[in-house]
Amino acid sequence: MGTDIVAQFTDSAMETVDSCTRTDPDGFEETLAELVAEPAVGAPLPSESVSLEDTVVDTDPSVEELSAAETGVTQAGTAIADYGTVTVESRPGGDELVSLYPPRHIVILEADDIVPDATAAFDRFETQVREARENGTAGATRVLETGASATGDMGGLVSGVHGPTEVHIVVIEA
């Protein structure tokens, strides 16, 4: 993945998130440790380059632990450089719940999962859904996130209404 698209994503994301940090697999655990507020919960990462295994993040939390968590850690599926948007897939590990309940959400993003625009993202989603149907598996639903949750429905902009008040993105570059 070209550095230009990563830089474009980072610039766009910084308009709506608290931080967007670029690191490599060797620096991942240190970067994550700087961002986590305990207690922390997470969904198992499908990444081949990084893991939550040797961190303080609980990847098999109970309902009570999820409710008490200060930080949730999930992996993004696809990211859109134009908007600084990430997608959180609905997977059996509980990605959606982990991304929405704790007040701080840390998104792990592989640089190779950044596409330039919404058209490229939806082309990728279409391919993934088609492959899932051909394999007889259910295609995952996706939540598109651009920064912390917010609403302006009743006046001024209010953050954290139905999700985290802080969002931090960690981009893993091979």
Rank of each mutant, 00 (worst) to 15 (best):
S49I: 12
G42L: 04
G77T: 00
Q8S: 15
T87Y: 00
P39R: 11
Q128T: 07
E110W: 00
E65R: 14
Q128M: 10
V98E: 07
F122D: 08
D58I: 02
S90K: 10
T87K: 03
P116E: 08
R133A: 10
P44E: 14
T23P: 04
D113S: 11
D54K: 14
D26N: 12
A7Y: 12
D82C: 01
D117H: 03
L35T: 08
P103C: 07
I114N: 01
A69M: 04
Q75L: 03
A140W: 08
V17L: 09
E110C: 07
I5K: 11
Y101M: 15
Y101E: 12
T127L: 08
E48R: 13
G77D: 02
A7V: 12
S67H: 05
E131F: 02
G93F: 13
S99K: 03
R22F: 04
E65T: 11
A43P: 05
R22C: 12
L35R: 13
S12N: 11
A138D: 12
A43I: 13
E65K: 15
C20I: 10
T16D: 06
T119C: 00
A118L: 15
V63A: 14
L52Y: 11
M14D: 02
G27P: 05
A138M: 09
R130E: 13
D82M: 03
E131R: 03
G139H: 07
A118C: 06
A121K: 04
P44G: 06
A69H: 02
E48I: 11
P103W: 05
Q8E: 11
A37S: 15
V41N: 03
N135D: 15
G42S: 09
A33G: 10
E30S: 15
E134A: 08
T16G: 01
D112F: 01
A69I: 05
F122G: 01
A120P: 04
V63C: 07
V36L: 09
D18V: 06
E64T: 13
T10N: 12
A69G: 02
T119S: 12
